[in-house]
Design a protein around this nucleic acid. Sequence first.
DNA 1: ACCTGAACACCGTTCAAGT
DNA 2: ACCTGAACACCGTTCAAGT
Lengths: 223, 223
Amino acid sequence: MASHRAPRLAKKPPDQYHHGDLQRALLQAAVRTIQKHGIAGLTLRAVGEELGVSRSALYRHFADKAALLEAVAREGFRTFRLALLAGWEGAGRGLAGFDAMGMAYVHFALEHPWHYRVMFGSGFDRSASNPELTEESSGAFQVLVDALVELQGQGLVRSDDPQSLAHFIWALVHGIAMLAIDGPLQHDGVDIDALTRFAIERLHTGIAAGPSAEGRATPVTLR
Amino acid sequence: MASHRAPRLAKKPPDQYHHGDLQRALLQAAVRTIQKHGIAGLTLRAVGEELGVSRSALYRHFADKAALLEAVAREGFRTFRLALLAGWEGAGRGLAGFDAMGMAYVHFALEHPWHYRVMFGSGFDRSASNPELTEESSGAFQVLVDALVELQGQGLVRSDDPQSLAHFIWALVHGIAMLAIDGPLQHDGVDIDALTRFAIERLHTGIAAGPSAEGRATPVTLR
DNA sequence: ACCTGAACACCGTTCAAGT
DNA sequence: ACCTGAACACCGTTCAAGT
């Protein structure tokens, strides 16, 4: 790019001080390394090698390894929130939007399993004051709460405390995601999509037997 | 214990070859170390020190560190299964037993968080053929399946595929447990017991609004 | 049979030194 | 201001050697 004399081209031009934005490059390299070698195989040496940079260069841009993982989690929560929102709004909100948001949740976990693992794993202190991370995290959660409040306003969802409802539903999809990624649903030939659809149906009508629920084709959506 | 001459008493008598059952002692020491220093702080050196034994002595009884963690998980699944069964039978089976089993699930996770983390964490290969572990694990799952089949036989639960129902319910309680232990429910002042009870209620009747569910004090348990 | 202790190949992190 | 390279204190694992 700049004007040096006849640079001997390596794959990445080590012209200036290596990068204009090493911070961002380190983040991306960390994600690639995790995808290749797992979260335990994320070593600062491997990250540095991928960029042709010393292993201690990272410390100019991140406090330590945990901070690097936090950055990965933050990036994950950001795109996660957008995915949930896209599901909700893409299906035109309402009960269809609610269901689409649930599917989007599980799909995100299946499509970005490593991001999801880092986001909800224990690679860093969640309690240690980390305002940026908790903000992104609760931002994603808020999408669900907002949707529930809207549905309650339309009389489509029970008028319970929205926080409790949201925690309940979040736990459900989180559980499906975790069991699908790392748990026994992984290799048992379970159709995750079908299970998720089933779970969302049961979310609407419950599991109780009896004329009020059993045999009804569509969930109760009076009014 | 045995007859040596005037043993200079250390805390643990290093009389013979240290232990009659080092394997079991190592397992317990591992659990204690994890409880004290976290799952990442589990080092073979720390385990050995706790027993006054070399750090390589472990390799006589476990293939490697992952095998030690697997043993912890196996022990966890065994007592977990018993806890679920105690809830189910202690409450006299039926719907009350079902609810008690759900509470027992979450309570186990809250009372043995480190065991739970190891059981469902990624400290070892779950796919790598490990028959003993998967047997214990699916044994715990089977308690739930059996209960559901029994409830279906009594007409108390929808006649869906019991496996799907079990996966759905398992995901829910697993999600609550994970969010309560490591997630944002941890320090938000959320009453986990109340949330679990609420979740189990919603499990019965669903979240839909309308006369068929809203306002009814007790879940539908016709017949 | 069971355990030790040195050795090996790895880690994350620090810090003086280079440009 | 940004990065290097040596050094430090840790790891898990192996293996000859002791009893």
